[in-house]
Design a protein around this nucleic acid. Structure first.
Length: 415
DNA sequence: TTAGGGTTAG
């Protein structure tokens, strides 16, 4: 009988197929992926790289350090890593907090000469931008990568655009987008690029420029999607133009773009900010009709409105019912209710809530401590304020500008 | 459909 594959190759192919199928079905957990990796690496050949990438992705998402260690085993096996394997490695290094290793891995990839436009370092660039060093990320994308014939793709650009917008440099992002369009090269702005910059412009209050860019996007034949529209709706709601935002929602339906919970949350927040509760009820009805379920953020927005309008007891009812609705309160949820109790000067309720928060495994963050500091400062209870500073430090949190600002204000008041 | 970018809440 003639063989199409050398000995062992057939069972290897079957195993590779099994891994990829189960990966696509979302049926591989970390533990399972580790076992499959052990099994595959013993018989692995060049064809195994896709299955290995799947396993590295699963393990790396859960435990990036483990992802790096698996990569070392791939490198020792007879499997030449693919550029995607390197992307996963750089991702793991960055998420493990080893930015230096991420840089080293990027240097290694460049040295290996992956010259096609497909290698990119999304997580490295994101990590650099998160440190507010977007200029450096921009230098990597615009100068360093092309210098090594490693052409950045649209993902890399979008990360830089987002970094610029986060640093309130949306004007620069706008200029860069125009250069990309005029250049007319293979890397053209897409819906994500445009949406990012439109959102950045809106957040900086540059409404006209945002609309101009939206029109430019349409002229370029790029269709908006739910994220583009949600950004515009959110920007309008924050500018108190909620009725115009509602019109955009209508236009979404006309264009066949279905709103999601983020879209609705922006509108709910917008109506609450104007005290228009009837319209909020209307939005909830519309959500039900359209099959969109409220999420934790919806409940947080609702609770925030109730607390700020002196209805803490109602907010507490929502809080207590959240768990039964399958929504676990987050640190934000606790801080909203805590702020409500602080407004009512209900110190007993505040302390009970913090105890509950800790019991439920959520550590108080800066927001929570600052609410406590502010509440005690208002009552000029200096000893309590200092006690909270100590507690913060014990928990490894350094008081921030808000904490110190409150204390300085208190000290200047009491002389 | 081997990874990777954009929207909402304190």
């Amino acid at each position: 009988m003639s063989r199409r594959f050398p000995p062992g190759a057939m069972s290897r192919r079957i195993l590779e197929r099994k891994i990829q199928d189960r990966y696509h079905a979302g049926h591989i957990g970390t533990h399972n992926a580790l076992n499959l990796f052990d099994e595959l690496i013993q018989v692995a050949g060049p064809s195994s790289v896709r299955a290995i990438n799947c396993l590295l992705t699963v393990v790396g998402r859960d435990c990036p350090v483990l992802g790096v260690s698996l990569f070392n085993r791939v490198a020792r096996a007879k499997v030449p890593p693919h550029n995607i394997t390197y992307s996963i490695l750089v991702d793991c290094c960055c998420r493990a907090g080893c930015l230096d290793l991420g840089h080293a891995a990027m240097g290694h990839v460049i040295k290996l000469g992956f010259t096609e436009a497909i290698v990119n370092f999304s997580h490295l660039l994101k990590a650099i931008c998160a440190e507010k060093k977007t200029s450096y990320a921009m230098d990597i994308v615009l100068r360093i990568m092309p210098m090594f014939n490693c052409v950045p793709n649209i993902f890399s650009y979008s990360i830089v655009f987002k970094g610029l917008c986060n640093e309130k440099r949306s004007q620069e992002a706008l200029e860069l987008i125009q250069i990309m369009v005029e250049d007319g090269g293979c890397c053209r702005p897409d819906v994500v690029t445009y949406s990012t910059v439109i959102d950045g412009l809106l957040k900086e209050g540059e409404v006209d420029q945002a609309y101009n860019l939206f029109s430019e996007m349409l002229r370029q034949g790029v269709s908006p999607n739910v994220v583009t529209c949600s950004s515009i709706i959110s920007g309008m709601c924050k500018a108190q133009s909620v009725d115009k935002a509602k019109e955009v929602l209508q236009q979404m339906f006309e264009r066949g773009i279905l709103p999601n919970i983020t879209t609705y949350n922006s509108l709910i927040q917008g109506y609450y900010s104007l005290g228009r509760c009837k319209e909020v009820d209307q939005i909830f009805k519309e959500m039900t009709i359209n099959g969109v379920q409220p999420d934790i953020i919806t409940y947080n927005i609702q609770m925030d409105y109730l607390c700020k309008s002196g209805q803490c007891a109602e907010a507490r009812k929502i809080f207590d019912s959240m768990i039964s609705l399958g929504q676990n309160p987050t640190a934000t949820t606790y801080s909203i209710l805590l702020h409500g109790y602080a407004m009512e000067k209900s110190f007993h309720d505040m302390h009970c809530l913090i105890d509950l928060m800790v019991e439920n495994g959520i550590s108080p963050d800066h927001y929570v401590y600052n609410i406590l500091i502010s509440a005690y400062a208002k009552e000029e209870m200096v000893g309590e304020v200092m006690h909270i500073f100590t507690k913060m430090r014990q928990q490894g949190l350094n008081p921030d500008a808000v904490s110190y600002g409150t204390v300085i204000d208190l000290l200047s008041r009491i002389g």
